[in-house]
Amino acid sequence: MTDPLALDPVLPPRERSERSARRWNEDLPHDERYEHFEAHVLGGGKIEPNDWMPDEYRSAVLRFVEMHANSELMGVLPEREWIMRAPTLRRKLALTSKVQDEVGHAQLLYRVAEDLGKPREAMFDDLLAGKTKFHNVFHYPTRTWADIGVIAWLVDAAAIVAQQALRDSSYGPYSRTMQKICWEESVHIMHGRDVVVTLANGTTAQREMLQEALDRWWGPLMQMHGPRSDRSKDRDLHWRIKARTSEELRQEFLTIYVPRILELGLTIPDPELAYDKAAGEWRYADPDWNELRTVVTNHGPKSQERLEFRRLNREATAWVRAAVLAEPKAAA
């Protein structure tokens, strides 16, 4: 029992050190500061925009978030092509809303990146000049309505597996933004699955169209998370900018979605695909990493066309950005 008279008004040293957790912000010699920063991040702590951070961390987060923002922005183009051809009004509304959401995600993510020090115009310049990249899956054509279902269901599912892990990112603004984005993406997955299940219940031609779309998208889907990487050499993992390796993400995607794809009577175009119970993981044919490299360096089937669309769109909307800046708003 505590004797109130004997109460020590100062906390014991162990509790005290826990409370002065943001030591790396103090004016310390670089190496010492760096050590505090590392200890904080590796201990599960978050970094906020005004915190001191090593340049390597700043540029690593910026590169990661910028690539994500680019992917959201470019990712609407394949789907946009089907807005006018959506089969019903409800599908048209859902698809339009999804496109609007993805552009919204780009807006949120470009804001996170801007606060790390790179202006939005510079990010657009680099995207259009091919200096920065966007995800492989957005370099391919959308040939049929079934593509729209497969993209919204499986591409978004593969993405959300990665994005859910990013809610734990060490960079605070990014992890918070991912919470909102994941919430919205979950609607997209339902929309896509509904399109796919509807086609699976349709005519023979519709089922064939669905299978043909899956056949085309399976390769890019398996490439999407990237090749296996060495955990110990991955700096993004080390600093908890991201939480899981590419192979962990792919395995989770397969665990959740393979049974759901097979449930519909579809065939997955990989004869080697099987769950290895003893190893506790999926075996699959090695994805075509050359194709991934070719595609993400803007040599994919639709890379140049989509970048050209962005270029034209940027010119066509320049007057809007000028108008926003031109008129100083009189104080109300």
């Binding site: 109460l7 008004p9 100062v10 906390l11 005290r16 409370r19 002065s20 943001r22 005004n50």
Partner: peptide
């Protein structure tokens, strides 16, 4: 912004 931990989280026992 105030984020000075000497002020916000002083190393004093505030359990009372």
């Amino acid at each position: 912004v105030l984020e000075d931990l000497d002020l916000l989280q002083p190393p004093l026992d505030r359990s009372f």
